[in-house]
Structures are given as C-alpha cells and as structure tokens.
Simulated scan of single mutants.
Amino acid sequence: MIPWSLLDTAKLPDGSGELRLKQRGSEFSIMLGTNELMNSRLSGSEEALATLVRERLSERPKPRILIGGLGMGFTLRAALAAWGTDARIEIAELMPAVVAWARGPMAVVFGDCLDDPRVTITVADVAGVIRAAPGAYDAVLLDVDNGPEAMTIAANDALYDDGGLGQAKAALRPGGILAVWSQGPDRRFTQRLRRAGFAVEEVMVRANKGRSGARHVIWLARR
C-alpha cells in the first residue's frame, strides 16, 4: 500500500482548524482533523449537483451559474460539460489555498477547466457574493462545508438558515434553482426551504456513481 504524503496545510479563516492536502499515488484527499472532506476518487454526487440542475434548466439561454465552493472541481467540470458556450459560471471559494492547490499540486485533476473563458473565480465568502447580486443568477449551486449543518466553519450555518435562504432566493431569477449538496438528509432543512417559498425536490445520489457506497443528498429548490 502506497502511504499518504502531506502536500500542504491551510488554516481555516476563523482559526478553528486546519485543512490538509494529501496525496497517495494519483489519489488526492483534503482532510480536516480526522474527517475527509473530499477525495478525488469520489465525484458522483458533486457532479450530479451540476447535471441535475442542467436537466431542469435546459431551455435557458445564456445561463448564469454561481457555484459556492471549488473543492476538487467536480461540480465545475460537470457544469462546463453540461452547459454550452453561452453559459457564465462563477466560482466563489473562501480559501485562497484551495484555489492555489487547484492550480498547483492538483492541476492533474483540474486539467484546463479553470482557464475556460466561461469561468470566473472569486476568492470570497459565497454568502457575500449572493447578497451582492439580487436577481443575477439562473442557478446557485452550494457545495459548502458538510451541507446544511456546518462542520468546517461555523459561520457557514448562516448560508442555510432562514435569512440565508431568503438571500439565495433573492439572488435567483424567476424559476431559478438553488441546489444544495449534503452528506446526508436533513428534514428540518427541507422544511426551511419550503418555508422560504421554494418548490423543493430532494434527490439521493451515490458518491461513487455506482450502486453501492455512501449516498449523499441534493436539494433542488426552485424559486
């Protein structure tokens, strides 16, 4: 068995912990403490975050998409493959180190997707980007933290509370979709989405794109 190598570390903005980028052969992992936040072998549910939205917005011309969280780029690459040349895709990533890893040690995973002319990368809290852009987006895709219950940064909870959902709804164009990735189900979050006035669809997706393994949840909330 090839051992893991530690490539880099990055402090969380609130000082509550440290992300670690590790590599084993061609496999990459981003860890927080003993918790693996993402792995380059498991991309199914993150890709589905983009493809499920694309299926529901297939007729929209010149769609403008906001993706909260760069991660390992699975959602971004799926969005680029799904949408045409008239799409505009903005990435809001809180941690500069994650963007640096994408262009550095994990460039083999990302390929040339960050240089696609449809893509803009903003190093910022996605919550601030959402607040600053009322009526701007056809879709907002959130793969931030562990889902509606923050594990990495406590402030991320505000994305998923009543106020945060109201701001996300305001950032959407009529008929637009807020899509939220989560490690698991959360009945209270479904209720909050409905209380915010969204029409809610909840989809279970395999992490490894097969018939076995972990099942993650994607909420598709239409304005």
Results as ranks from 00 to 15, higher is better:
160 Y>A: 00
119 V>K: 01
174 P>I: 01
222 R>T: 07
104 G>E: 05
86 D>M: 07
103 R>M: 06
174 P>F: 02
6 L>T: 09
65 I>H: 04
57 L>I: 12
84 G>C: 08
53 V>L: 03
126 V>K: 04
212 S>I: 04
14 D>R: 10
45 S>Q: 01
122 T>E: 15
99 V>F: 08
121 I>Y: 11
185 P>R: 04
17 G>I: 01
158 A>H: 08
97 A>R: 13
186 D>S: 14
107 A>Q: 09
116 D>Y: 07
86 D>P: 07
185 P>W: 05
186 D>Y: 09
55 E>I: 04
154 A>K: 11
196 A>F: 02
83 W>C: 00
143 D>A: 08
19 L>P: 10
206 R>F: 14
107 A>V: 05
45 S>D: 01
67 I>V: 07
26 S>A: 09
10 A>T: 06
194 R>K: 15
114 L>G: 11
49 L>C: 05
112 D>F: 03
196 A>K: 01
43 S>Q: 13
166 G>N: 08
156 N>G: 03
136 A>P: 14
196 A>G: 14
181 W>V: 01
147 G>L: 03
62 K>E: 14
125 D>P: 00
36 E>C: 13
24 R>F: 07
150 A>H: 12
109 V>W: 10
92 A>Y: 04
18 E>V: 12
68 G>L: 01
28 F>I: 02
72 M>S: 08
191 Q>R: 15
101 W>C: 09
212 S>T: 11
126 V>S: 10
19 L>R: 10
120 T>S: 14
63 P>Q: 15
11 K>Q: 13
216 H>Q: 14
157 D>T: 13
206 R>L: 12
79 A>S: 12
55 E>L: 09
127 A>T: 11
133 A>P: 15
197 G>F: 06
150 A>Q: 12
22 K>H: 07
167 Q>P: 12
31 M>L: 07
211 R>P: 15
169 K>T: 03
139 A>F: 00
218 I>E: 00
29 S>L: 08
87 A>S: 09
10 A>S: 15
16 S>K: 12
158 A>T: 13
92 A>P: 11
41 R>K: 13
57 L>M: 10
26 S>F: 08
76 L>I: 05
130 I>R: 00
201 E>K: 07
64 R>S: 09
34 T>L: 04
11 K>R: 12
146 N>I: 05
184 G>W: 07
76 L>F: 05
36 E>R: 09
202 E>H: 07
201 E>W: 05
74 F>G: 03
200 V>R: 13
76 L>V: 05
170 A>V: 06
120 T>K: 08
92 A>K: 02
163 G>C: 11
61 P>L: 05
161 D>V: 08
161 D>F: 09
78 A>V: 03
7 L>V: 04
169 K>Q: 11
64 R>K: 13
212 S>F: 06
25 G>P: 02
3 P>T: 08
96 P>H: 03
25 G>D: 04
92 A>G: 10
153 I>V: 12
170 A>P: 01
119 V>R: 01
218 I>Q: 00
69 G>C: 05
69 G>S: 05
14 D>K: 13
16 S>W: 11
138 D>H: 15
99 V>C: 13
65 I>M: 06
139 A>Y: 00
73 G>C: 03
176 G>S: 02
27 E>A: 10
2 I>P: 15
179 A>F: 00
153 I>R: 12
23 Q>C: 10
201 E>I: 04
155 A>R: 07
3 P>A: 12
127 A>Q: 15
71 G>L: 04
